[in-house]
Design a protein around this nucleic acid. Structure first.
Length: 197
DNA sequence: GTTCTAGAAC
DNA sequence: GTTCTAGAAC
């Protein structure tokens, strides 16, 4: 090992290198180009890499990292998420669903509002698919109910997270089980065309 | 979260 | 030979 690489390794061991990309939403929240609407406590932005025809994120202005930082004092805030969701449902023509990823990659609590077509060039990997179509996607209504009943949100068991991530591909609109992502994406187009007729 | 790419799968 | 997936990113 070279002297240089040894020094680099030591530096990295000493300082847990922050995942800078995970802070991206905090910047996007402030970008007027990305903001769709605002209400009292929340901001709605367009997802930078939409996984469906419609894909928004709802975030609080308050510095809350994830659903696992929520307590009873946040019930009102979460209900505002629901009001925003209803507003957007009325505005958009496509069927939408709202929910949170069990293990989010990005910091700052964010709720996905996404149309069910799942047709988008940014939808590429099995993980993309399974994070919206398995229990990894925690529906808004379930999260609100859990917060009201228990005063906090319990983390999903790691084994279940793993099983969601590795689950075989399954169409969200029929019983078709594609072998590959390209097959799935092609198949999703046929559902979309049926919708349009 | 995405990008890149090695090598598995076809 | 090409398509596709999956793991590293210092």
């Amino acid at each position: 090992m070279s002297k240089r690489s040894g020094a680099v390794m030591a530096a990295n061991l000493n300082s847990k290198k922050p995942k800078l990309w995970s802070l991206g939403l905090l910047e996007t929240m402030k970008d007027p180009e990305s903001i769709v609407k605002k209400s009292k406590q929340v901001v709605v932005i367009k997802d930078k890499y939409p996984k469906a025809k419609i894909h928004y994120l709802v975030l609080p202005e308050a510095d809350i990292n994830s659903i696992y930082a929520l307590n009873k004092s946040h019930v009102e805030l979460l209900e505002e998420f629901g009001e925003i969701f209803e507003e957007i449902e009325k505005e958009e023509k496509l069927p939408l669903k709202a929910g949170f990823h069990a293990v989010p990659s990005m910091q700052r609590l964010h709720m996905h509002i996404i149309s069910t077509d799942m047709v988008s060039p940014c939808l590429k990997t099995k993980l993309h698919w399974n994070s919206f179509t398995t229990e990894f996607f925690r529906p808004y209504a379930d999260v609100l109910e859990e917060l009201k009943e228990k005063g906090c949100i319990t983390k999903m068991a790691p084994e279940l997270v793993q099983s969601c991530k590795s689950r075989e591909l399954q169409c969200n609109q029929c019983s078709y089980k594609p072998k590959t992502m390209p097959q799935l994406k092609e198949h999703l187009l046929t559902h979309l065309k049926k919708e349009e007729n």
